[in-house]
Structures are given as C-alpha cells and as structure tokens.
C-alpha cells in the first residue's frame, strides 16, 4: 500500500463534500452493497432455498445429537412420546375418568394421537422461541438467512413425529382400527400442520430473540392450550351439562391445534360413536390456518432479519 502514513485522529470524519467522493458515493461507484442489510423478500426466499441442504442436515444433526449420549440411543425417540401417553392414560383415562363416554379401544388411540400431535406443535413453538438465543454463536459467526434456524428445528420435530406416527399406527391396529383408504388423509393433515407449525415457530423466533424470558413463560401458555384444545378428552364432553352456549364448543373445536388433531383422528379412528364424519370446513380451516401462519410468520420474521444476533 501506500506512500503516505494514514495516521488519523479518532473521530475520522467523513471526507468533505466537493471534489472528494463520500463513502457512499465511492461505494455506489464500485457496486459495493451495505453489509448486513436486509435482503428483499424475494431475495430472502431465494437465499433460504439455497440453504435447503443446510436446513435439512442441521435438523438431522440435532436429532442425532439429541439422544447420542443415552445408552439406548434413538430408541428414546419412540419411547419418550410413548411414556408421555402412558402417563396421561393413567391419569385421565383411569383416575379422572375423562374418557367422554369412549371405550378404551376408542379412547387410547384418541389420546395417543392427541398427545403426539400436540407435542409436535408444542415443541415447534419452544424450539422457535429458543432458535435465536440458543444459537447465538452460530448467528454471530456465519452468514445465512436466519429463518433457516426455526425452520430447521420444526423439521427436527417433524422427524421426531414420524417416529411417533409409527407408534400411533401400531396402537390403532392393536385396538382394532384397521387401515383403510381414509388413512391416507393423514399425510395432507400432517403436512398442513407442519406448515402451520413453521409459521408459528417463525413468529415465536422473533419474539424469543427479543425477549429470551419467553422460554420460561411459554410452557404455561402451552399447557393451557393443551387443556383447552381437546388433547386429552373431547371438548364437547367437558362443556356438556354446563351453562354455556353451544358456540363456545364450536369455537374451541375450531382452534388450530384441535383442527389438525381432529383431522388425524377422524381419518384413522373410523368405528366409534365419537368418530366418523367430520365437517368439510375442517379441511378449509386447516388450509387457512396453515397459509395464514406461514405467510404472516415468514414476513414478520424477515422484517427483523438484520437485527438478529445483536446484544
């Protein structure tokens, strides 16, 4: 470099206007871009698509690492949800009698599906909240669209759910619900829930990045959502005989968590007094919630893209 010493005072004022180029002009002249600026929405989507291999492989790596210290390893991926369902069965099925008039062969699959699908949403939200604060080192070291993180964690939860789904199928068959064509509806139902969860995780990722305390608060919010969404017992059964207008039950049944669960249940539990036909608008709700959550969540997350990792 140079012939002169650039010893400078601390303030380093921008070059005086006039014959000299300002930093911005010099940058523009050579096509330099502002570092760390937020890309436009289409560019952001393109960047994210470019990182798809990273997103998938990061989620798989997390999943592998999760149980690698346990002696039984990956078996816990199936065992953990199964034990969860067993605890709820003991408490709500036998001790509290919350079966809502269902026989065991109908109630147990009902419960297992409810618990597993709720866990999927619950873990997606929790992973979203922690996705930025929990990976701050990564965010501060490497450049990538930050939405990769929450999406990757939701995919990790999806892979966990696929193990659980095997358990669900075994339980269904074990209690005399045999496969039929309607079982195929499980695939679009799960995909829609995946989309919904991704959107939700993106929203919570932005909140969690701003307020890390949310990780302490969310378990309580989520538990409330669990009891209010008919995970463990049918909503109608709880409200029965109480002095509430019937629309309360309809609204409770139409909340997103309940919608995805009911779609799965009605697709697989086909013979039982409580299961059978499901109103067609449930599919509309499922699609609507999924699209709304994804679009709103994605845009909301993107709006703060350049601020993640500060502080």
């Amino acid at each position: 470099m140079s012939e002169t010493t650039h010893e400078r005072a601390t303030s380093a004022a921008p070059p005086p206007p006039g014959e000299k180029l300002s930093a911005a002009e010099l940058a523009a002249r050579h096509g330099l871009a502002v570092s760390g600026a937020r890309p436009s929405l289409p560019a952001y989507v393109r960047q994210l698509w470019g990182r798809r291999h990273f997103i998938v492989s990061f989620s798989q790596a997390k999943l592998t690492a999760q149980y690698s210290q346990a002696k039984m390893g990956q078996v816990w991926q199936v065992l953990t949800p199964l034990l969860n369902a067993a605890v709820y069965l003991l408490i709500f099925g036998y001790l509290l009698g919350g079966r809502g008039g269902m026989d065991m062969p109908e109630y147990i699959p009902f419960l297992v599906i409810g618990v597993f699908l709720f866990t999927f949403t619950q873990q997606s939200v929790m992973a979203g909240v922690k996705s930025i604060p929990g990976n701050i080192g990564l965010v501060r070291a490497l450049h990538f669209p930050r939405a990769s993180l929450p999406i990757s964690f939701v995919l990790q939860q999806l892979q966990q759910l696929l193990f659980s789904t095997v358990v669900i199928l075994v339980v269904l068959i074990g209690f005399g619900h045999y496969p039929s064509w309607t079982w195929l509806l499980v695939v679009p139902a799960l995909l829609l829930q995946l989309v919904f969860n991704s959107g939700l995780a993106l929203v919570f990722a932005r909140w969690g990045a701003a307020v890390p305390d949310l990780a302490q608060l969310m378990p309580f919010v989520l538990r409330t959502a669990m009891y209010g969404s008919g995970v463990l017992f049918p909503i109608g059964h709880i409200l029965e005989g109480r002095d509430v207008p019937s629309w309360v039950a309809d609204v409770a049944l139409a909340n997103p968590i309940s919608v995805y669960m009911e779609l799965f249940r009605h697709a697989t539990i086909t013979d039982g007094p409580h299961h059978g036909g499901l109103a067609g608008y449930f599919w509309l709700l499922a699609v609507g919630y999924a699209l709304l959550a994804l679009v709103a969540g994605f845009v909301y997350f993107w709006k703060a893209e350049e601020r993640y990792g500060r502080g």
Partner: peptide, 28 residues
C-alpha cells in the same frame, strides 16, 4: 454484516466471511 451497526455503514463487495465454523459443529 453479523453485527448491525448503531450508526454508520459498512459497504462491501460480495459477502465477507469470517474464517470459523466452530459454532455450527456438534461434538456428538
């Protein structure tokens, strides 16, 4: 571009990268 400036700007040609991937690696 990993830390947003409080004020002022950094202009760069392409994407500057830090030599370091430690945070992405997993010990397990």
């Amino acid at each position: 571009g990993l830390l947003p400036p409080e004020s002022g700007r950094v202009y760069t040609d392409g994407q500057p990268s830090l030599l370091g991937v430690n945070a992405a690696l997993m010990n397990d």
